[in-house]
Write a protein that binds this DNA or RNA. Structure first.
Lengths: 102, 102
DNA sequence: GCTATGATTCGATAAGAATCGAACTATAAC
DNA sequence: GTTATAGTTCGATTCTTATCGAATCATAGC
C-alpha cells in the first residue's frame, strides 16, 4: 500500500468536513457493513441518498464527486442507478493516520 | 467514552481539511510520540510551528483555536509560550470511526 | 516600570464552497 | 421513437474560510 501524501490526506478530511458529505459517507460505510456476498446489492444507492437528505439532486451529485475524487468511495453504475462502495484502502490509511506512526 | 455526534465529527474533519492545520496537527502528533515522561517538554510549541510554516502568526493562532474547538488538541501556556497536546480521546474516536461500527 | 518577544484581536480582502433552479444527458420500459 | 426517471452540467447566489497587516495583550527579564 503506497504512502498517502499530505495533500491527499487534507483532501479526504476536507471532503468529510461537510455535514452532508459526512452523512453520505456514513451511508456508504453502513451499507458496506451490511453487504455479505457478491449476490447482495452492490453498494449504497445515490437514489436513496437523494431522497433521504434535505438537499437537491445537483448538490448530492456534486458531493458524491468530491468524495470520489478524495478517494473515499468508488462509484459504479447499475442501469439507471448509481451506487457507492467504500474504498477500503483509503479507509485503512485514515485509520493508520490516527492510530499509528504513519 | 461518550459517543461522538455527527456535528463533532464533521467539525473535526473540517479542521483537518485545511493543509496548514493538518501540518500543525501532524506536528502535535509527532511530538506526542516523542514525549516519554512527565519531565519531558509538554507538547508541541506554537512558536516552532509559526517559524516552520509559511503563514503569519495571526493565522496560526486562528488555526490552533480551530483545532482546539474541534476537540483535536489541548493548548496550555508555559510562560510566554503555548504548547499543544493531542486529545487522545478524540484520536480514539476518529480511529474507531474508520475502523469499526461506531 | 520599561523593553522585548510570543501570541491574540480586529477589520478587511480575496478565494473557495454549498446550494439552487433550469436545462440537459442517459437509461429503461413500453 | 416516446415517455418517465435517474443523474449531470451550468450559472448564479450566498456563505464561509484563509490570510494578512496593524494594533493590542501577556509574560519574562532587566
Amino acid at each position: 500500500m503506497s504512502a498517502i501524501t499530505d495533500d491527499q490526506l487534507a483532501r479526504a478530511f476536507a471532503a468529510l468536513g461537510n455535514p452532508n458529505r459526512l452523512k453520505i459517507f456514513r451511508s456508504v460505510l453502513a451499507h458496506q457493513r451490511r453487504d455479505i456476498g457478491p449476490e447482495e446489492d452492490a453498494g449504497c444507492l445515490i437514489y436513496d441518498v437523494i431522497n433521504k437528505l434535505d438537499i437537491g439532486a445537483p448538490t448530492v451529485s456534486h458531493h458524491v464527486k468530491v468524495l470520489e475524487k478524495a478517494g473515499l468511495i468508488r462509484v459504479t453504475r447499475n442501469g439507471k442507478f448509481l451506487s457507492c462502495l467504500l474504498n477500503e484502502e483509503m479507509r485503512t490509511k485514515l485509520t493508520l493516520f490516527f492510530n499509528s506512526a504513519l
